[in-house]
């Protein structure tokens, strides 16, 4: 191929390589995509939770998409505490008002944003959650205050279907 006889020949080989490469790519994609969540997993995206039995100061943990979701009914003191924190003191500044639409209910993905462990309830230096794996402290709004975790615990999409039922997802 070192001797360039005509352009046509080069074009032919280039075209063959290019078309071949497209085919290889198109063949590899299904092999990769098969590992993505399948149709039956995607269909299970939402869960409804009955919270009528949760009294103030208590947390329940429910399973959503294979992960724990903390649902805490906060006391008035806790709400006051969460709302009094100055944004400047936070590693990942977020207002409690944005995290808990209804201040009484905190619905939050119970997964430490460091490396995915489940933090313990009412532990740590900020009366919120404490992750035993690498020592991250979260406050009563689930915001990171101390330790290696980079961000606050995630708030999933949820809504109150009625006064007693929360639909997550």
């Amino acid at each position: 191929m070192s001797e360039k006889k005509t352009n046509r020949r080069d074009f032919l080989f280039t075209a063959t390589y290019a078309v071949g490469a497209v085919g290889v790519g198109a063949t590899i994609w299904p092999m990769i995509d098969q590992m993505n969540p399948d149709a039956s997993v995607k269909a299970l995206a939402s869960t409804e939770v009955d919270v009528s039995a949760v009294s103030p100061g208590k947390t329940i943990t429910v399973l959503w998409r294979g992960k724990p979701v903390f649902i805490r009914r906060r006391t008035q003191d806790e709400i006051a505490e969460a709302r009094s924190v100055k944004l400047g003191d936070l590693k990942h500044p977020e207002k409690d008002e944005d995290r808990a639409k209804d201040p009484e209910w905190l619905v939050m993905l119970g997964v430490c944003t460091h490396l995915g462990c489940v933090p313990l309830d009412q532990k740590g230096e900020y009366n919120g959650w404490f992750c035993p794996c690498h020592g991250s402290h979260y406050d009563i709004s689930g915001r990171i205050r101390k330790g290696p975790a980079p961000t606050n615990m995630e708030i999933p999409k949820y809504e109150f279907v009625n006064a007693n039922t929360i639909k997550i997802g």
Partner: peptide, 16 residues
């Protein structure tokens, strides 16, 4: 269709 096109291309490359 794709395979046929590629086969034709490869055929002429092979001839060359």
């Amino acid at each position: 269709l794709y395979l046929i096109i590629l086969t034709i291309l490869v055929y002429f490359s092979m001839k060359k």
